[in-house]
């Protein structure tokens, strides 16, 4: 991230051109936009945060709740969640799904995206078609469910990620990034006698850190949040991942006949719901700044020169 700052300064100092009125208005609008956006985004986030810390004896409406002072906060919702018998188990299952899912997804997607990005490949058009058709024609739940049952994946963790391990959307996005890499780089390697796998490993991958991280994040989040497939394919109680637990909490009152008991002791259910969202989002949220490290400007250029 430091690089950006220094380079940015350089833009205006090294080339001795003064910013014009147009530049000023541009900068002003950009910052205004970001500032407003920050405000708009902060509202739901903040209200969810304060909601998650709301004590059980809280009196007042939602607006007042947003201005609840931190010293009046209660952590009972978080304590109740961590004390929930199924929470750690579900977390563990989710981590297994995340690791297995992202690994297999990237392993399958990267080569496919790379192959599709080679413009001279005979049959490329047909391959693209082959990839697009299942993306557009979504035959729905049952045809896939039948497949998963027939190959014996049912009630196993990979059932949650294997059937969706290649997302055509992600694959084609990745392809378009690969296509953006100057052809000369690949050709020179090929002339040096490198095989396609070597070209992929030595030329493409190092230049595509940002996009691979991004697509990995997309996959990771989709697997981490995948409630529907987990609900369909996983039966054993011991295999239930976090989204199932979360859904059970979020939908709790919809079904519960025995409203006289609470699964979470003293914590208010609204706070539990809000807290459960944060608890489950933490790993993904924590991963993003790490991925942002690879978002440095002009990555490509640096590599070509180096």
């Amino acid at each position: 991230m430091k690089k950006i700052g220094t380079r940015r300064k350089g833009r205006f100092t090294s080339v001795a051109i003064r910013p014009t009125a147009a530049d000023h208005s541009f900068n002003f609008l950009v910052d205004l936009f970001l500032g407003l956006l920050l405000l708009i985004i902060a509202i739901p986030l903040w209200s969810t945060i304060t909601l998650s810390f709301r004590p059980n004896d809280y009196i007042g409406n939602n607006l007042e709740g947003m201005f609840l002072m931190p010293w009046k906060w209660s952590t009972s919702a978080y304590e109740a969640l961590l004390g929930n018998a199924g929470f750690l188990l579900a977390f563990g299952n989710s981590v297994k799904i995340l690791i297995g899912g992202v690994a297999s997804a990237l392993l399958l997607t990267i080569p496919l995206a790379y192959v599709l990005s080679i413009p001279t490949l005979p049959g490329r058009r047909y391959l693209n078609m082959l990839v697009i058709v299942p993306y557009v024609f979504n035959v729905g739940m049952i045809p896939t469910y039948l497949l998963v049952t027939n190959i014996g994946l049912i009630d196993k963790l990979p059932a949650v990620y294997i059937p969706v391990a290649i997302s055509t959307y992600n694959c084609l996005i990745m392809r378009s990034f690969f296509e953006g890499i100057p052809n000369e780089l690949k050709e020179s390697a090929r002339i040096d006698g490198a095989s396609e796998i070597q070209v992929l490993l030595r030329i493409i991958l190092p230049l595509s850190k940002a996009i691979i991280m991004t697509i990995g994040l997309f996959y990771g989040v989709s697997f981490w949040n995948n409630f529907f497939h987990a609900m369909l394919y996983l039966n054993s109680n011991a295999l239930q991942p976090l989204p199932i637990l979360l859904r059970n909490i979020l939908m709790a009152s919809g079904m519960n006949e025995y409203v006289e008991v609470s699964a979470f002791g003293d914590a208010p259910i609204a706070a539990i719901k809000a807290a459960s969202v944060f608890m489950s989002a933490i790993p993904m949220v924590a991963a993003y700044p790490f991925i942002q490290k690879y978002f440095t400007k002009g990555t490509l250029l640096g590599s070509v020169k180096g």
Partner: peptide, 20 residues
């Protein structure tokens, strides 16, 4: 390089379409 993704596509994308 294409072999594994292709097999994957046939099993996990085209068998469901067949079931469709």
């Amino acid at each position: 390089l294409l072999a594994i993704p292709l097999i994957y596509y046939i099993i996990f994308k085209y068998v469901p379409i067949f079931n469709g």
